[in-house]
Write a protein that binds this DNA or RNA. Sequence first.
DNA 1: CATGGTATGATTGTATACAATTATACGCGA
DNA 2: TCGCGTATAATTGTATACAATCATACCATG
Lengths: 226, 226
Amino acid sequence: MDNQDLKQEVTDKYSLRGRVFHRIREDILNGKYKDHEELKEVAIGQELGVSRTPVREAFRQLELEGLIQIIPNRGAYVTGIKVKDIEDIYMIRSKLEGLCARWACENISKEQLEEMEENIYLAEFHAARGHMEQMAELDNRFHNILYESCNSKMLEHLLKDYHQYVWRVRQKTLSSSRGAVSNVEHKFIMEAIKENNPDKAEELANQHMINAYENMVEKGLLSMFE
Amino acid sequence: MDNQDLKQEVTDKYSLRGRVFHRIREDILNGKYKDHEELKEVAIGQELGVSRTPVREAFRQLELEGLIQIIPNRGAYVTGIKVKDIEDIYMIRSKLEGLCARWACENISKEQLEEMEENIYLAEFHAARGHMEQMAELDNRFHNILYESCNSKMLEHLLKDYHQYVWRVRQKTLSSSRGAVSNVEHKFIMEAIKENNPDKAEELANQHMINAYENMVEKGLLSMFE
DNA sequence: CATGGTATGATTGTATACAATTATACGCGA
DNA sequence: TCGCGTATAATTGTATACAATCATACCATG
């Protein structure tokens, strides 16, 4: 039957539970559900073709991530990202990416270093040609390599979460002219890691985040969150 | 905090869902469920006197917190805290408590500063008399005041999470002789905040965490996680 | 007309039923 | 005895049923 076929297809990619969670999460981050909007279990369930149970479980997780607020016996309300939150996250990330880069000096693998180098090289190519989509993808990947190379599941998990969280802003940021500059900063960070200079790597990664944030402010890219 | 927030917090504390979640969380952190142990939905439900539904919802949240790992169609397995995790958390907290203390310089209220002062004064009293339980309570409270005074919900939430996470170790740590030393460090941090010296406050809070961690290592308090 | 209580509907909270999946035990045959 | 397939049990995944709670509208009463 159609129903079964669809279900099978879905299960192949993600578990149903994971799919529901990620879908709602994405819809919130993409602005489909506005700030303070109430999310009804049945409505969303119908839209995704599932019952309330998986939706409720997704809600619990989204609440823990801070994307929605659940008021018992009342409902679930979208917690929009505030400008202040973005600022805080970038300052927090500044410290943590610094720590990450420091740890990466000791723990990065040969393969990870090579992929970083390739990443930066490729990004130079795309930056020169204004290929914004590829730039965004490469930036994404650079930071994920960095996170994976610090040999700390705790820190990796934390940074990936925040990275995801500010995804919308990041897209915008890299669509601006910062892509090339950002890539040069990546290069310096990588070189500091390569020459095993933790202080330098930490300082550079630190500043990289602050620069990214200040660029957003200058370009007025935070207006979308007001 | 307005009326609505208060109401929610109170209701949540006594709601079934909140109780189940916190209870299982506590049982994991207290070591009732050992590393790699499988958690069965019905068994835990029966123990807590509820059905599988609230238990499952709690599991989803616990997975997001990294306390358990859920393998689809197989089960939920406890992810024990590793020594490495504790080390990582303390280094992460070092950076973040520093940032928190920095922000507190600008944002702390008169009332919060007064409560801090009272907290430290009282701790001196109990430290001199070896009242360990009160010391633990006061330490707990000192850090929470600090978190609340930084004017960042993001950072406050993050630090409170980690604070909870290492609760077991903290108890042990303060049962040692470090209580008095720790309180002096609290005093210095508070004074730096009071005289609005962000660099000093950050550096002191930074070092406070590192000292706490090194004390644990020296006293062999991490053996319980091996 | 204002106000307060109550009925009603909508929505969430919990329990249970059923489906799908996985693990285990058993028997059969080589 | 070992390997293998199948039946069976145990467990999770999902849907639904029922209970509790909350919001709203309406009506009675002053």
